[in-house]
């Protein structure tokens, strides 16, 4: 690289393209997307038995029901109050730690703070919503009949997997990571539009209504982590060929 001043007739397009190339390189070096997704996937999968065994389920006596009729059950995902909020905060703290450590080892700063702050704020909202609905149900009867679609969508959005996805959108924005944005949109569709092949209606235990979706969310996050890891390795392997330094 020359250290001479830019000649008067130098192409400003080339200079601008060089600066953009450097900025893009730094942003790539700051990313640790696969670790973020791996932590979230790990949390989701580890939480499965915790959610299962701590969910309080009260059903009408298990009389034989006519075919196609659902049991009437009430349930309380108690882990939403005491497990998920601290676990999510710990997960975001772990992600921040790994990002900062990796960036520092590479010799640059990290861009993870807005993501972590967003995750923490959404976790607070999730906890507040959980408390609010319990306070409401303590003084009101549970609504009869199916809940409206907008309520179910809001409920899923403020569930752990919804807020994970919303925070990932912020990470994609601050990293200017189009691949992560595309992945997160797909993930949110899976998480917010529940996948149901009939297990919600034919399972003997109401907890089975939630289990498959949680497994699917965890697997999607895990596959995303593997995908970003492999893409990063492939990019690192090909970097000397397609990334020319500024000249």
């Amino acid at each position: 690289m020359t250290s001479n001043s830019l000649p008067a007739d130098a192409d400003p397009r080339q200079l601008l393209a060089d600066t953009r190339g450097l900025a893009r390189q730094v942003r790539h070096d700051q990313r640790l997307t696969w670790v973020a997704l791996l932590v979230l996937a790990g949390l989701t999968l580890v939480a499965i038995p915790i959610d299962w065994f701590t969910m309080k389920v009260d059903c009408l006596p298990p009389i034989s029901l006519p075919k196609g009729q659902m049991m009437e059950c009430t349930f309380d995902r108690r882990a939403y109050l005491w497990f998920w909020p601290p676990a999510l905060l710990l997960a975001y703290a772990a992600i921040a730690y790994f990002y900062l450590r990796a960036a520092r080892a590479r010799g640059i700063g990290a861009r993870v703070r807005p993501y972590v702050v967003t995750g923490a704020v959404l976790t607070g909202l999730f906890l507040a919503a959980g408390i609010a609905i319990r306070v409401y149900l303590a003084t009101h009867d549970a609504p009869e009949g199916p809940l409206p679609g907008w309520f179910l969508l809001l409920d899923r959005t403020l569930a752990p997997w919804g807020i994970m996805g919303l925070a990932l959108l912020v990470l994609a924005r601050i990293e200017r990571n189009v691949a992560l944005l595309a992945f997160t949109v797909g993930y949110l569709i899976v998480a917010l539009v529940p996948v149901n092949f009939g297990w919600a209606y034919h399972s003997p235990d109401p907890r089975l209504e939630f289990l498959p979706q949680q497994v699917i969310n965890g697997i999607v996050l895990l596959l995303g982590s593997i995908g970003f890891f492999l893409a990063g390795r492939r990019r690192a392997a090909s970097a000397p060929l397609d990334e020319q330094p500024v000249r």
Partner: peptide, 27 residues
């Protein structure tokens, strides 16, 4: 100036940058 513009660009994107990173990436 190309090098100094490169230093400023990297420092801006990275928030802070270590000397070795600049040396390697600006060659």
């Amino acid at each position: 100036q190309r090098v100094r513009l490169g230093i400023l660009t990297i420092a801006h994107e990275a928030r802070k940058v270590e000397f070795g990173y600049l040396r390697d990436h600006l060659e």
